[in-house]
């Protein structure tokens, strides 16, 4: 395991460049190019915001802004994780020729997908900041914080989301080698996961033992901590921090073990 991890670390530049070139290839023929990285989740957030507002039969203007901000930041974060997982799941079967030609730690392919997901996520943060800044000009009494030290928690949370997504990407990448329709199933799982995560609803609505639903969800603690930092302007609770770290560690350990123990089989199965 240690030589594998050493080789994995030594070859990290390959994962970074693969991600850069994959992004370049994907947006080469698109006129709007990488704008779609922001436009896609932004439009989706708008649709969900309208849906949530209609279901609630309208909302006050200030709570409307915080609802919009909540959906935006949570959806961006959720999509970061789901892009890590979905991209990771396809990375091995899509990299067939590379796998059949070169010997390298195969975990670099899901890592490359996670890096791509991170670069797609990063430009959404200024978009969120812009929406909140403009919103605060019109609704100065909103609860959403302006510049705050609590934002210093954001890198920790983003790292936990990325590591959890990468770990689960390893798990689903292995499954996809054995069962080629795993990625189709994953699209349904992602949809159900989105609705059962605190993206369209605030984590505060869960009280008492119901909060367990937040912590049995691998993305629950990170999304709850995201809401805490970006919307409530507070530091994450200790339970959320432990939850974030636990799920990140579990995802990487379980996904990594499952992947590495089977990766020498990939060249035969692909």
């Amino acid at each position: 395991m240690i030589p594998y991890l050493r080789e994995f670390w030594r070859r990290r530049a390959f994962a970074i460049e693969l991600s850069r070139f994959a992004d370049k290839a994907e947006y080469l023929d698109s006129k709007l190019g990488k704008v779609w990285l922001v436009l896609n989740p932004l439009l989706l957030a708008m649709v969900y915001f309208l849906l949530v507002t209609v279901i609630r039969s309208g909302a006050s203007k200030t709570s409307g802004l915080s609802t919009l901000a909540h959906i935006l930041i949570e959806l961006f974060t959720f999509y970061f994780a789901s892009n890590c997982i979905n991209g990771g799941a396809l990375s091995i079967t899509a990299g067939g020729r590379l796998i059949l030609n070169q010997a390298f730690p195969r975990a670099l392919l899901p890592l490359s997908s996670a890096i791509s997901a991170f670069w797609a996520f990063l430009p959404t943060l200024p978009v969120y900041a812009l929406v909140v800044l403009v919103g605060k000009l019109f609704f100065p009494h909103t609860q959403i914080p302006g510049l705050s030290f609590t934002y210093l928690w954001a890198p920790f949370i983003i790292a936990c989301v990325g590591i959890t997504g990468f770990g689960l990407g390893l798990l689903f990448a292995t499954m996809n080698v054995y069962f080629r329709d795993t990625n189709k199933l994953l699209s349904y799982i992602t949809r159900i996961w989105l609705y059962s995560s605190p993206v369209l609803w605030r984590p505060e609505i869960l009280h008492g033992w119901h909060r367990i639903f937040l912590f049995i969800n691998p993305l629950g603690p990170t999304l709850s901590a995201t809401s805490e930092v970006w919307i409530s302007g507070k530091a994450p609770t200790l339970a959320e921090i432990i939850g974030c770290l636990t799920w990140a560690a579990l995802a990487v350990l379980i996904g990594g073990y499952f992947f590495i123990s089977r990766e020498r089989d990939f060249a035969v199965r692909i």
Partner: peptide, 12 residues
């Protein structure tokens, strides 16, 4: 190695 033509080249 050059084990199968193409070696995983990205056509784009």
């Amino acid at each position: 190695t050059l084990l199968a033509l193409g070696v995983g080249f990205n056509p784009a």
